[in-house]
C-alpha cells in the first residue's frame, strides 16, 4: 500500500514562528515529513509539541500577519507555501481536507448538515443544486449515518457526538480530496463511540485510497490507524518509523518514556508508574541542545550543546538522538512492560 518513491506530501525543513521580536515562539523547528500515496501517518505528541501546527501549516490556516513559515510543503509537486487566492481556495477541501476535534465548533450551527455539504461541493464544482444534494446524501451514506435522507435536514446540535463527527467526515470528504488531515478526531468522543469512528476512518481510508495524517496524543489510537508514527517533542519530530518499530523497538528516550508511563493492567501492591520527570518545555525558552535533555536520564554533554540530527537506525526508522547506541540496550529492559 505504501509507496515512498512517489510521496503525495513532502515537507522539508518546516519552521513556523508565531509573533516577532524577543517574544517570538518557534512552534515548529525543521520538520521533515513525507507521506506516501495511500499511507497513514500518525503524528503523536503532547500539547505544545507542534502536531496541530504542522497540520494547519499544510492547509495554510495560520494567520499570515502573525506567523512566519519557512521551508517547503509540497503536495503532489506543488509548493503550498506559495499558493494564493483562488488557487489556495481550490486546494483547500479539494486536494487536502481536514477533520477537526470538535465538530460542534467546526460546523455552522445555523445551517443544516445537508446545506453545509452542498455548499462545500458547489464551491469546488459547477454542479446543480439537485446533484449537490445527491452528493450530500451519498456522503452521509458513505459514513454510515442511519436514515441519511432525514439527517440531511438535521442541524448539528440535533445530532449526538458520534453522528456529528461522522457528518464532519462526510463534509471533509465531499469534494473527494486525495489527502485527509485529521486533528484528534476521536478525542472528544466516548470510548464506545471512539472505536466506531476509528474503524470508520480506517475503512474509508482503504476504500477511497486516501493518504492521511492523523494527529493524536494517544499512542493506542495511533497503533489502530497508522502505518507509520512520527513522534513530536517541542516542535521537532524526534522519532519516525513503522508502527511496529516505534512501539516495539522505540529508540528515542522520550518515546521509550511515553510507552512505559502508560498504565498497563492491574497494579501490584506498592508499584508505581515509571514517570518522565519534569514538565514539557516552554517553547519561548528552549534549551540550546536537545529539547528533551533536561528530562532525559541518559543526556550527555553533547545533548545539551547542540541539537541532534536524525539518524537512520535501520529500515527508515529515524531518531533524533545522540545516544541511540545506548537506547538500543534500554529497550530490552523495557520490553516486557511495553508488549504485555
Amino acid at each position: 500500500m505504501t509507496t515512498t518513491s512517489d510521496p503525495v506530501l513532502d515537507i522539508r525543513g518546516l519552521t513556523v514562528t508565531f509573533g516577532g521580536g524577543p517574544k517570538a515562539v518557534r512552534a515548529l523547528d525543521g520538520v521533515d515529513l513525507t507521506l506516501g500515496r495511500g499511507e497513514v501517518i500518525a503524528l503523536l505528541g503532547e500539547s505544545g509539541s507542534g502536531k496541530s501546527v504542522t497540520l494547519r501549516s499544510i492547509l495554510r490556516l495560520h494567520p499570515p500577519k502573525r506567523s512566519r513559515i519557512e521551508g517547503s510543503i509540497k503536495v503532489e509537486g506543488v509548493d503550498v507555501t506559495t499558493l494564493e487566492g483562488r488557487a489556495l481556495e481550490a486546494f483547500r477541501g479539494k486536494t487536502v481536507s481536514m477533520v477537526f476535534q470538535e465538530p460542534m465548533l467546526a460546523m455552522d450551527p445555523v445551517y443544516t448538515v445537508g446545506q453545509q455539504i452542498m455548499e462545500a461541493v458547489r464551491n469546488h464544482e459547477s454542479i446543480s443544486a439537485a446533484d449537490a444534494r445527491a452528493r450530500a446524501l451519498e456522503m452521509l451514506t458513505l459514513v454510515r449515518i442511519p436514515s441519511p435522507e432525514r439527517r440531511l435536514q438535521a442541524y448539528p446540535h440535533e445530532m449526538s457526538g458520534g453522528m456529528r463527527q461522522r457528518a464532519m467526515i462526510a463534509l471533509a470528504l465531499s469534494s473527494k480530496p486525495r489527502i485527509l488531515l485529521a486533528d484528534e478526531p476521536t478525542t472528544a468522543l466516548d470510548a464506545t463511540v471512539q472505536v466506531q469512528v476509528l474503524l470508520l476512518l480506517r475503512e474509508l481510508q482503504r476504500e477511497l485510497g486516501l493518504s492521511m495524517i492523523f494527529v493524536t496524543h494517544d499512542i493506542s489510537v495511533a497503533v489502530e490507524v497508522a502505518d507509520r508514527i512520527a513522534v513530536m517533542y517541542a516542535g521537532r519530530i524526534v522519532e519516525t518509523g513503522t508502527v511496529r518499530d516505534v512501539i516495539r523497538r522505540p529508540r528515542h528516550p522520550y518515546t521509550i518514556g511515553l510507552l512505559s508511563t502508560r498504565a498497563h493492567g492491574g497494579r501490584l501492591e506498592g508499584h508505581r508508574l515509571p514517570a518522565i520527570p519534569g514538565s514539557p518545555p516552554d517553547l519561548a525558552n528552549l534549551p540550546p541542545g536537545c529539547a528533551f535533555a533536561p528530562r532525559c536520564a541518559i543526556a550527555a554533554e553533547a545533548c545539551r550543546a547542540s541539537v541532534p540530527e536524525a539518524v537512520d537506525v535501520g529500515g527508515g526508522h529515524r531518531v533524533r538522538c545522540f545516544r541511540t547506541a545506548d537506547t538500543a540496550n534500554r529497550i530490552a529492559a523495557l520490553a516486557p512492560a511495553v508488549t504485555s
Partner: peptide, 19 residues
Amino acid sequence: SMLSMNPDERTMEAPLAGD
C-alpha cells in the same frame, strides 16, 4: 472498547453501535 496497543491485533469490530 479499550484499544490493544498491538499492531498485529487491531480492533476489527466495535463492541457497540450508536451513541
